[in-house]
């Protein structure tokens, strides 16, 4: 009995760490969608870029904080460029933005292969080893990753809820036309969400670099997970994304521990379908679906 509970808690903890990564990716997807209505499919590739940038800095300097500090502006810059060069032309037709993001996937993947080759790259996690807490093995890096994700998401939440900038973001999300009338620079706000969304993907990439191998093709996995989480949490909703992300992480971990992975994806997306049907705006309620 006691052993069973310990094992359950062990799986649950293992899952939380991965779930925090999903939550961050989903937060980026959700922000961008909430304001621009663009389903940004190249987010997975941004995560991949973040991971490679972090890997280069971390291997080169041995400083993980410097790696994060580099990945954030680099990815923010990529976000800015993609918005200026590509997405701002598709704001009136968000579906075109979605399709264009597919073209970007090819470009990002190919560029990454050209720079870093297609072979998997590994890095040492900044923190090695584990603590034993009540018979649960807690990997140090997992704790660090969880802490990073928690801080980042908390900052996002605080900015959105408590600051003027955040309020204008929410205003644009709720009603772009009224916001424009009230003098909110709608286009600038949308540009900012692309920057922030990309930076979030970049931080997620930094964390992924500490967990597993990276290749130019890892993006799809994280996109799918991030997307499912954004859906379940309600598009446009950061708290929802955080909760759903942790939930997915734990669910995957429990599946790994108890039943094997076979149908996990079917359950995840099946859940997303049911939730979308039951409450189209997600469990916690989010932005209204826009017309196509």
């Amino acid at each position: 009995m006691g052993e069973d509970l310990t094992l359950f808690l062990q799986y649950a903890f293992n899952g939380i760490a991965m779930g925090a990564v999903y939550a961050m990716i989903a937060a980026g997807i959700t922000l961008v969608y909430g304001l621009s209505r663009i389903i940004h499919f190249a987010v997975g590739e941004l995560v991949m870029f973040g991971a490679f940038v972090a890997l280069m800095v971390w291997e080169g300097t041995g400083s993980f904080s410097l790696a994060i500090a580099t990945a954030i502006p680099v990815l923010a810059f990529i976000g800015l460029i993609t918005e200026r060069v590509v997405f701002r032309f598709t704001l009136r037709e968000p579906l075109t933005g979605f399709i264009v993001s597919l073209g970007l996937i090819l470009v990002f993947q190919g560029t990454a292969v050209e720079i870093w080759t297609a072979n998997p790259k590994y890095s040492q996690p900044p923190l090695q080893g584990a603590w034993e807490l009540f018979d649960i093995t807690v990997r140090k890096q997992s704790v660090l990753n969880l802490a990073i994700a928690a801080v980042v998401l908390a900052v996002c939440y605080y900015v959105l809820r408590k600051t003027t900038a955040g309020k204008s973001v929410r205003a644009v999300s709720d009603d772009p036309e009224a916001s424009a009338l009230m003098g909110i620079p709608v286009k600038k706000v949308i540009m900012a969400t692309f920057i922030v969304g990309s930076a979030l993907a970049g931080i997620a990439g930094c964390i992924i670099m500490t967990i597993g191998f990276i290749t130019p093709y890892i993006g799809a996995v994280y996109l799918l997970r991030g997307f499912a989480v954004a859906l379940i949490g309600g598009l446009g909703n950061i708290q929802g994304a955080a909760l759903a992300g942790i939930g997915l992480g734990i669910a995957e971990s429990l599946a790994a521990g108890y039943v094997g992975p076979g149908w996990t994806d079917a359950y995840v997306f099946g859940t997303a379908v049911l939730i979308l049907l039951w409450r189209p705006t997600g469990l916690a309620g989010g932005a209204e679906g826009a017309r196509i």
């Binding site: 052993e3 094992l7 062990q10 799986y11 293992n14 899952g15 760490a17 991965m18 093995t137 990997r139 997992s142 992924i208 967990i211 597993g212 191998f213 890892i218 996995v221 995957e252 971990s253 429990l254 790994a256 521990g257 094997g260 992975p261 076979g262 996990t264 994806d265």
Partner: peptide, 20 residues
Amino acid sequence: LITFPYNTADFSSFVSRAKA
């Protein structure tokens, strides 16, 4: 036999299971 999704990054839970 323990199988895992092709792109698994974090093996903690599979290893926890083997340890248990």
